[in-house]
Design a protein around this nucleic acid. Sequence first.
DNA 1: TGGCTCAAATAAATGCTATTATATGCTCAA
DNA 2: TTGAGCATATAATAGCATTTATTTGAGCCA
Lengths: 211, 211
Amino acid sequence: MDSNLAKGEVFMTVDQIVVEYGVSRTIAREASSQLQALGLLKGRQRVGLVMHRPDAQDLMKNWLPLYARSLGGESVQALAQLRYALELGTIGLAVANATEDQTSRLKEIAARFEAVTSAQGQTEEADSAELEFHCLILEMSGNPLISGMHAVLSDYFHVAVQKNPNWRKVSPDAVWEHKAIAKAIAARDVELARNLLRHHLDNSLSELKGC
Amino acid sequence: MDSNLAKGEVFMTVDQIVVEYGVSRTIAREASSQLQALGLLKGRQRVGLVMHRPDAQDLMKNWLPLYARSLGGESVQALAQLRYALELGTIGLAVANATEDQTSRLKEIAARFEAVTSAQGQTEEADSAELEFHCLILEMSGNPLISGMHAVLSDYFHVAVQKNPNWRKVSPDAVWEHKAIAKAIAARDVELARNLLRHHLDNSLSELKGC
DNA sequence: TGGCTCAAATAAATGCTATTATATGCTCAA
DNA sequence: TTGAGCATATAATAGCATTTATTTGAGCCA
């Protein structure tokens, strides 16, 4: 498939596929259905088959249910471990590649998290700030593949916690840890950032083991 | 789709779908084509639509090309970073979950790697031993999702190095590092294992930056 | 005589072609 | 701005080709 076509541009019509490849309309439609299932094309009536360029998040959204299905009953824990591995494995890249703007935003989110938890405890707003905090760290890595996968996983757990409030972890050190992590990243201290993050995450993962 | 059916069992025939859902044969075939694109079914003539249960490796093989495509020119580096993140992020789990048999095998592979590199240098056989070494570590984590993804990524780079020998990294410390990592895992020393692995991997990744 | 093997015949289902009908929504003249 | 016209997707139907699982019957042997 021509990778030079931009998203939204017409790739071909079904009739063009029929002519070009010498197959019947049924086969052309089946082929395009398969590409649609993979997220690469979209059929639009009166227009044709339109290129779609799924990014890492799109792809992960598609495949996450299939992964969960392949894992069966252990899927929650396995996915949580994957998320953990992505965060801890990527912190070095994040520290190396973070921009000034990103480190500023990270500090701001840590401050907002502190303000919210002081006033209200671990609420959905605090959950959102935490989600944003971690996603920004992954974004700092500059790797859309990793940050895209992580974002989908994080959102998955974010929604799961909304539906299962007993899964919400309450970590007394979270506020302090967030601030320290943001500082360590701003100071380009890979070791410290990694250690702080690991400590922060170990609490989360061990709590999930009980689910 | 009935998740209780085992792999290889007949799910339904196309005609059964026609009757069950009141659609035409064309639509039934298109629907099954989409599920085939996702790897969930396989059509077998004279038999029917057969359940397929892709595991994490199968799934990753399917969508690795899509990921690479979404990343464009940066795909090699991004995938290498993902592999790095998975390895470094998972070492803690591997240390925690490794069995005696696995740690024995890891030591054996490290010894074999030493023997091969002493006798022949960094050859394809040494590459294979290194691949096996790293894949075993991921396997120790006990997480089929992470080890499956990693295995596909590692194989991808293994094949890429075979095709581009200039990409083969030559690390003088690799032999020593492998042995030390195996020892640290056997001793359940998470910190040491992580530090050794990171040092070992940092060399690989920085060399890949030049690709 | 019963059981087994094996080749041939049969049948079940996928795979594919061809054609027609309908639905959707984009285009563009008014 | 609007809505009729139109291009193409979507869906259905009928028929044939291919693959392969199952059945059948002949022949053989203990």
